[in-house]
Every structure is written in C-alpha cells, then in structure tokens.
C-alpha cells in the first residue's frame, strides 16, 4: 500500500470543447517527495491537478492518487489529501483564524490552528476578514487550510504566485518542512527558481504534454559554463585549442569570457583555462562556474520563455 506512488498519471487527456488542455500527459510522483509541475500559463498544470483532485473527469488515460481513483474514491481521498486552489475558496467575510479553526474541525487529528496561523505569518491578521487580506496573505491562509488536516498528500496550485520575496521564502520553508515530515507534495508553478529549490523531481509541461522530467540537477547539470573576466581581445582560437573537443569560447561583452562544455565543469577544465591564461601573463578574474537553469532548458526545448 505505502509502496504505491503518491500520484501516477498515464496518458491523461482532457478537452474543453475543442480545446485540448492536456494531451497524453504521464507522470509519477513518489511518496514523501516534492514533485513540481513546471510550465508556462496555459500549459495544462491546473487541469492536470484538478483531475487528480477529482474536480474534473479525465477524457482519456488513467489517474491514480494514493493508489485510488480520484472520482470513484473521492470520499476516502477527501480526508487524506489537502488542496490549495489557485485562488479563492474562502468565504469572503470569514476571519482568518475563524476559518482555519473551522477547517481544522473537519479533521480527526488537525494541527493547532493558532500555531499554524503563526507558521504562515498571519497571527497579526487573525481577526481580519478574508477579503481584506492582501493577495499574499490570502494565499498563505489557503496554504494553511490545505495542510491543517495533516494530509498524506497536498496539491498546491501556484502557492507563491504574486508573493513578495519574504513571504515566498516563508512558504518555501513550510513546504520543505512538510516534506521532512513525510508529506507528499505536488506543486504547480511557473517559477523555475521555486521548482529548482523545492522539487525532488521536476516535470516540465508545455501544451499539455511532458517535455522533460527528472531531478533538477539531472535536468540542468549536463551542460557547464565557465565565466571569467580578463583584458579584451584574447586569442579565442588559441584558448579553444587548449580545451577538450566540443567546447565553445566567446567574448561578450568585451573583456567578459564564456567557456561552455557539454559536460560538467571539472577541475581539469579550470586548470586548462587558467594555465592558458598564465602562459600569456593574463590574470583571469571573477572566475564563475555556472550550470544551465531550468529556464534555459525550457527555452531550448520549446523555443519560448517560461513567462511567455
């Protein structure tokens, strides 16, 4: 039973009239891990999550949540799964603390609402009606409500959209805490930084299909970049001759150099670059090793940016 994945999706298809929102999407999310579904707006993230939550019926494919059918077994899943919608869901005139207390009352072993309210930074707004909370505060109240029942699995749809950096980091810490406690997290996001930081596994979707998936390091780590500054006009052809085959060297802008290799940047590469410079009496400054980001990967796979 506990060997079953948190979520297993095979060939999910979902259409809204003539529009195909999800076109044969498959993914597997392990237990007690954070799985990020990363993609631009309109990629099919919310539709996929809402099928898992039992709000929408799949037009094709199979979806299993904790080994159960999201529609047929909705009754059992409602107690075991926490949900944070992309927006709304809270009565507009309910006060933050009062709402969280009522939500806690739906569960057998809830977290203490006051303590949870403090953990999401809303103690000072405990008596504020939902509609008077800022957008970020509303998001954090919805997040607290999603986890108050101590679920095995939570679905978080864009939990930090529109949050300021401080609130975003508080939310990230909470999600990391959930994972440490053994909760499975499915996170829809279009922030690659969020996916890179939180996710054990990232599933990149576009046009309702998976375009890449894997651990963040697997997805980004295959290409390496070495940047450094030196006097303008170095002999790039000469530098390349000292580097492994397949490497690329560029100067842009003047005095800023970039060396790209298809593998990770290794000590040998750094030694080669600095030795080549040393032989010419050139001081390489601000030496930086960088890897490709998920943003770079997405651009490469789809020809578009994540925010496009």
């Amino acid at each position: 039973m506990s060997n079953l994945p948190a979520v297993q999706i095979d060939g999910l298809v979902k259409r809204y009239r003539s529009v195909t929102a999800v076109a044969g999407l498959s993914l597997r999310a392990e237990r007690a891990r954070v799985t990020a579904i990363l993609g631009p707006n309109g990629a099919g993230k919310t539709t996929t999550i809402e099928v898992c939550e039992g709000y929408r019926k799949a037009d094709g494919g199979t979806v299993r949540v904790l080994g159960l059918d999201p529609v047929a077994d909705a009754r059992e899943l409602r107690t075991r799964v926490g949900v944070m919608l992309q927006a709304g869901g809270v009565p507009t005139t309910a006060r933050a603390a009062e709402y969280l207390r009522v939500m806690a009352g739906f569960y057998a072993h809830p977290l203490d609402p006051a303590e949870l309210l403090a953990a999401v930074g809303l103690t000072g707004s405990a008596r504020t009606p939902y509609k008077q909370l800022s957008g970020g505060q509303q998001q954090r109240l919805a997040l607290a409500a999603a986890v108050v029942g101590r679920p095995e699995l939570v679905f978080l749809d864009e939990p930090t959209a529109g949050l300021d950096p401080q609130a975003r980091h508080a939310t990230w810490e909470l999600i990391e805490g959930l994972r440490r406690g053994g909760t499975s997290v499915i996170l829809a996001t279009h922030y690659m930084e969020e996916a890179e930081r939180l996710a054990d596994r990232v599933v990149i979707v576009d046009h309702g299909q998976v375009v890449a998936s894997g651990a963040p390091a697997e997805l980004t780590g295959s290409d390496g970049q070495l940047r450094f500054r030196a006097e303008p006009g170095l002999d790039l052809a000469g530098l390349l001759a000292a580097l492994p085959p397949g490497a690329i060297a560029k100067e842009s802008p003047s005095g800023h150099y970039l060396v790209e290799v298809s593998d990770r940047v290794d000590p040998q590469l750094i030694a080669s670059v600095t030795a080549w410079c040393a032989e010419r009496g050139v001081l390489a400054r601000d030496l930086q090793i960088e890897s490709r980001t998920l943003e770079d990967l997405f651009l490469e796979l789809t020809g578009r940016g994540l925010r496009a």
Partner: peptide
C-alpha cells in the same frame, strides 16, 4: 520539524 501526516475525518 513538521508533524507527520495523520489524516482522518472528524
């Protein structure tokens, strides 16, 4: 550390 999951309906 976050408490472990303990789902259940009231």
């Amino acid at each position: 550390g976050w408490p472990t999951p303990a789902p259940g309906a009231a």
